[in-house]
Each structure stands twice: as structure tokens, then as C-alpha cells.
Amino acid sequence: MPLTHISLRAGKPEAYRQAIFDSLYRALHETFNVPEDNEFMTLREHDAADFRYGASYLGVARSDDVVFIQITVNNTRTVEQKKALFRRIAELLRDRPGIRPEDVFVNLVEVAKENWSLGNGLAQYA
């Protein structure tokens, strides 16, 4: 049950933003076995004055096209699955909508399964 938040600088067309959603869902489906119709994502655009990043932190040459992706997931995945997810996200976003791998910044937030309520005030996974 991933919950994904995406942040980027304002100004990209709708097709670009939709391609980000599509590519992220595909990567999650392929590497984390996320089922069909399990898409919960938001995308927020920021003016240049409200968006800051380290242009060369850890030797990665980022541009103004950097995209921050934060994914909250159950704490049930292996390190190998996480590495596969990071790789696949970078590959798919490179292919569509054309984001350089250097500009793909991903952060996983892991939570226990009982920390979700997917509606109706229930803890569906508890």
C-alpha cells in the first residue's frame, strides 16, 4: 500500500506529470508487487523560490529538473527489492517523461502495516 508524494519545479505540462505517475506505478508494480488499482499519489509543483536542492551533493550533478519522490510503504521489503525499485524508477522516468537519472531523488518511509487506514475508519492491514 504505497502512498507517493512527488515534488518538482512548476512549469511542466500535464503529459509530463502524468508520465511520472504512470512510471512510478509501473516501477512499484514490477518491483514491490503492488496490485492493480493500488494507486495513491500526489504531485506538487513549486515555484523556483520555494524549491531548493543540493546541486552536487554526494557527487550527483542535479539540475533544475530534479524530482523528489517520497514513498511511504509497509516495512516488509528486502534491501534487494528497494535497490530494484530505485533502479527501475530511474530507468522508467528516463524513458518517460525523459528525466535524467541524476535528477531522480527517492526516499522510502517504512511503516508497520497497522499504521494504515484506507477508509471507513478501519485498520485494514492490522
Rank of each mutant, 00 (worst) to 15 (best):
K82A: 08
A48P: 00
V104G: 07
V60T: 15
H46P: 00
L28N: 12
V111C: 10
A27Q: 00
G121Q: 09
L3Y: 10
L3W: 02
R26H: 09
E30N: 09
I89G: 04
A27K: 06
E91S: 10
L43P: 01
V104D: 06
E110M: 04
H5S: 11
E36Q: 10
D103L: 09
H29R: 12
V79I: 04
P97M: 11
L92D: 02
A19I: 04
A15K: 15
G121H: 08
E80R: 14
S63P: 11
A90T: 06
G11Q: 07
L118A: 07
Q124C: 09
Y57M: 14
A27R: 07
D22M: 05
Y57V: 15
A123T: 11
T72Q: 05
A48C: 04
G121Y: 09
E30C: 06
R52M: 05
A48H: 04
V111G: 07
R77P: 03
F40K: 15
K12C: 03
H5Q: 12
G119E: 03
L92R: 09
R17T: 10
K83T: 14
D103E: 07
D103W: 02
V60D: 00
N107F: 00
R77K: 13
V79A: 10
A10I: 12
F40A: 12
N33L: 05
Q18E: 03
A61L: 08
L8P: 09
E102V: 04
R94A: 15
L85H: 12
H29V: 02
E110H: 04
R96K: 14
F105P: 07
G98K: 12
F68H: 11
D47E: 09
S23A: 15
D22K: 13
A27T: 02
M41W: 00
Y53P: 08
A48V: 13
D37H: 10
A123N: 07
Q81L: 05
V104S: 06
R26F: 00
R44V: 11
K113L: 08
H46L: 13
A84S: 08
G59D: 03
A90C: 06
N120M: 10
T31M: 10
S7H: 12
T72F: 02
H46W: 05
P97R: 13
Y125R: 10
V60S: 04
A112H: 10
N74A: 13
Y57A: 12
S117E: 02
N115C: 14
G54V: 00
R94W: 00
F105T: 01
K12A: 11
H29E: 06
H46D: 00
E36S: 08
E114Q: 14
D22G: 03
N33P: 01
T72L: 04
R94I: 00
E45Q: 15
R96A: 14
V111H: 11
Q124I: 10
L93N: 06
N74Y: 00
F51E: 02
H46Y: 12
V111S: 13
N115W: 11
D37C: 05
V109D: 01
A15R: 14
Q70K: 12
R96C: 14
F51I: 13
H46F: 11
I6C: 10
T78I: 07
